[in-house]
């Protein structure tokens, strides 16, 4: 029983990271109509930017997180302007292939700038907090707390701002949104910023929970796609649910299968899901 609860805690931690990543994928998929394969590497880029602020410049963690996320947002807009914007009139599959190339470019840049070795935000082992046989690291509390704050902020943004409402409208139906006079280019820009900020936070939290490595984002991409599709494409709330569900399922699966295959559990659930209910839990596209 204790084991189960412990895995549940780890599952929520992993699920928080997956949710943040899946929100961005779901939004870009819903609004720009293509599966962005560069999203994982955007996460890694955010994590490495924060690494520069925290470890090299020795700035406080939360400030570094904010700065890194801001920079990642700007970089996402830059990538869109350089590449994706010019391909937007083409079929979405071309954008998909292009994003595959962008992913590789980002990963190579990370390796060029920061090197291919593993990095950590903080050396030494953290003392776990224990309670009734359960343990959790302070960093993991930070992750869950950070994810909750971000998701709340996203919720307020989507529900109560004009831009947020327009974004949800576009994710629901692009043509209808355009007819009602929504400035689509502006919404696309906001989509990139929001997706990138969430991706960066996910990357930083992943680095906090484990280590930084140039391939950290690419390795998680499959689970993130699975979470986004599970929740229903274009449904940010679905993405959160999908992320939490897959996080918990992945951790619980270690009871039955070798932990080496943890990352494929999400994929297995995805395949079953696609066959049984291809529109996702929340009925996206």
């Amino acid at each position: 029983m204790i084991d189960l609860l412990q895995l549940l805690i780890y599952g929520v931690v992993l699920g928080s990271i997956l949710s943040l990543g899946a929100i961005g994928v779901s939004l870009t998929f819903g609004i720009l109509r293509f599966a962005n394969f560069a999203h994982g590497d955007l996460m890694a880029l955010g994590a490495y930017l924060a690494f520069t602020f925290v470890v090299i410049l020795k700035w406080p963690f939360w400030l570094s997180l904010v700065l890194a996320c801001g920079s990642t947002g700007l970089i996402a807009i830059g990538v869109d302007g350089l590449v994706f914007r010019n391909l937007r009139r083409r079929p979405p599959v071309i954008l998909l292939i292009s994003s595959f190339g962008v992913a590789l470019i980002l990963r190579s840049l990370i390796q060029l700038i920061w090197g291919g070795e593993q990095q950590v935000y903080r050396r030494g082992i953290q003392r776990s907090l224990t309670w009734a046989g359960l343990s959790i690291k302070p960093d993991q509390i930070t992750i869950v707390l950070g994810a909750v704050i971000l998701v709340l902020a996203l919720h307020l943004f989507l529900q109560y701002t004009r831009t947020g409402k327009a974004m949800r409208a576009m994710a629901d139906n692009v043509d209808l949104a355009q007819v009602t006079g929504i400035n689509t280019e502006q919404i696309v820009m906001w989509t990139w910023v929001l997706g990138a900020v969430m991706a960066c936070a996910a990357g930083v939290f992943l680095g906090l929970d484990t280590r930084l490595h140039p391939t950290m984002g690419w390795r998680l991409l499959l689970s993130i796609f699975a979470a986004a599709i599970l929740g229903g494409i274009g449904k940010p709330y679905g993405a959160i649910a999908g992320g939490l569900l897959l996080g918990v399922a992945s951790e619980l699966s270690t009871l039955f299968v070798s932990p080496a295959y943890k990352s494929t559990v999400a994929f297995a659930i995805l395949v079953v899901m696609l066959i049984v209910r291809p529109t996702g839990l929340m009925g996206g596209r």
Binding site: F34, P92, L222, F267, L270
Partner: peptide, 13 residues
Amino acid sequence: DYLAIATIGIAEI
């Protein structure tokens, strides 16, 4: 696009 994601999964496995 789902097929693309599925093939990544296969490659990972």
